[in-house]
Nucleic acid binder design. Structure first.
Length: 514
DNA sequence: CGTATATGGCGTACGCCATATACGGTGCCGTACT
């Protein structure tokens, strides 16, 4: 039976989309695969398909619980009952149940943090493992080094599971990020399937404003001209709130805000309203977007400069998954850079700080104190919790910390120098990425060409007037979408959201959300 | 960099203004409880 027949019989599709067949073939040949496929190209099939043919369990590492929920739900809805997930939203009993259920035919979704659990790993290793998938694999590079270091432990996990073949999937990776992913997963002799990140129907616009007020003026213009639904990205949580108030005052459409500090319920509610076309505009921090599968987002506006071109392409790429004309706008001022730069600053300790931290740890070790919990420890060091967790990861790597034991003899001048050098290097890398983003918008040349160059691609000849630098104006977009406008919006039920929320929380799927 | 809160001097007992300092983003987790 050939792959097309299987596709038809088991998955109900008549043909593969670009790249899918090649990727699936490589996976079936038991190769380690890195696939860079643009947003909306059908990544799920790339592991769903082989997981049904491969001998052994398929493990899928997913960065967000909401994303995991969605995918598991969709796959199960398609009739695949042996798709399970394991995460912190499950009760103890539910977890036990999942651990009993899993077998060599299971597809199991987990977070990288879950895979740090030794007992769980032993249970997983007791089953034959066929395929190890890392979804949204750019997270390894983007988050793994500092924010979510469990991403850097995945290589040990893969070894522990008996080296199943590995498939890393992402929509945005430069050559450098590709190398980082391959290196961090220790993928042996990998096959790389890379498809262009170019999305021709997305038109790019950059506008530099002199003041904050003028930024808002330009935004007002954009909202008059550009189509909705739209996402507006802001740099801080409070900015998302003030922006949504501003837009409401303009009567520019139904608006809500979204950021990581909101409760799970509120986030879920806003997300659902946006997906159901009950909102025109969502003002959000970078927390919003990953796994948002809404095909008809017409406009993405950035009210600041994202920290990297990768992040920009990820966020702007949420527009126009349906391949209809869409707009991506950046409105910025020179002052914008201080926020991203201060975030980078915040992530890494100062030299003096690092010295004090190591000294404190050495003292704890000398007094045979066993290592306290993360919250407690960050208090002792007067560090932010993410900072301490990052340091802990690297100290574990250097065998300074093992479990609750602090091997204080290893804490030396050399160790300080090594860590300090490493942190400085990473900090510089991040600052460079931001500078690249700055030069992307400051240049006088085609923005699309700049993006493609950044991703080591050549711009294909023949795209005229593709962005503001090529002379395109925001009034020129959306001419091609005329006939698809009117039937989009549904009437809004003013009191519907409470019932809707109750539905999401209580039944019929029984989610556990606190 | 801009904004919000905290401190400090004044010169008289509470309120005012000036200046100093802190903060800003992304998520998972057998779990800290108050």
């Amino acid at each position: 039976m050939n792959l097309e027949q299987i596709l038809q019989e088991k998955f109900g599709h008549t043909e593969f989309r670009t790249g899918q067949k090649e990727i699936i073939q490589s996976v079936l040949e038991k190769r380690n695969v890195l696939a860079v496929l643009p947003t909306g190209a059908g990544k799920t099939l790339c592991y769903h398909f082989p997981s049904r043919l491969i001998d052994g369990m398929t493990i899928v590492v997913s960065p967000l619980l909401s994303l995991m929920e969605d995918q598991v739900h969709q796959l199960r809805a398609k009739g695949d009952k042996n798709v399970l997930q394991l995460n912190g939203m499950l009760t103890f009993e539910e977890r036990k149940h999942v651990l009993n259920e899993i077998n060599a035919d299971t597809m199991l979704f987990l977070s990288p943090e879950m895979l740090a659990n030794r007992k769980l790993l032993q249970r997983l290793a007791s089953i034959k493992n066929g395929l190890f998938v890392v979804d949204e694999a750019h997270c390894i590079s983007q988050w793994g080094h500092e924010f979510r270091t469990d991403y850097l432990r995945l290589k040990e996990v893969i070894k522990f599971l008996g080296n199943p073949s590995c498939l890393a999937l992402t929509a945005t990776a430069t050559n450098k990020v590709e190398k980082d992913i391959i290196g961090q997963l220790e993928m042996d002799d990998p096959v790389i399937h890379r498809y262009s990140v170019n999305r021709e129907h997305i038109k790019f616009f950059v506008h530099k404003a002199e003041t904050k007020q003028l930024k808002l003026e330009y935004l007002k213009n954009c909202l008059k001209t550009l189509e909705k639904p739209a996402i507006i990205y802001a740099p801080t949580r409070s900015d998302t709130i003030s922006l949504s108030r501003y837009i409401e005052s303009l009567n520019a459409g139904l608006t809500a805000y979204y950021h990581g500090g909101m409760s799970k319920e509120d986030r879920l509610l806003v997300q659902h309203q946006f997906l159901n076309n009950e909102l025109d505009i969502i003002c959000a921090t970078s927390a919003f977007g990953m796994g948002i599968n809404k095909p008809d987002i017409r406009t993405v506006i950035h009210m600041h400069l994202p920290p990297s071109a990768e992040q920009f392409v990820q966020e702007a790429g949420r527009a126009g998954r349906d391949e209809a004309e869409s707009a991506a706008v950046i409105i910025y001022t020179d002052e914008d850079k201080y926020i991203p730069l201060s975030f980078i600053d915040l992530e890494f300790p100062e030299e003096q700080e690092l010295k004090v931290w190591l000294r404190t740890l050495k003292q704890l070790g000398q007094n045979n104190v066993s290592l306290p919990g993360d919250g407690e420890m960050s208090k002792i060091l007067q560090a932010e919790e993410p900072q301490w967790k990052m340091l802990k990861f690297y100290l574990e790597k250097e065998n300074i910390i093992s479990g609750p034991v602090i091997n204080e003899r290893g804490i030396s001048e050399q160790l300080f120098n090594k860590l300090n050098r490493q942190f400085s290097y990473r900090k510089l890398e991040k600052e460079r990425k931001f500078e690249d983003m700055e030069s992307l918008v400051q240049g006088k040349t085609c923005i699309r060409a700049g993006i493609l160059r950044y991703f080591d691609e050549e711009k294909e000849a023949g795209i005229e007037k593709c962005c503001s630098a090529c002379g395109l104006s925001i009034n020129d977009v959306f001419s091609g979408n005329k006939n698809m406008q009117e039937n989009r919006r549904l009437p809004i039920e003013q009191n519907g959201w409470k019932e809707e929320l109750a539905q999401m929380l209580i039944g019929p799927k029984r989610r556990t959300i606190r």
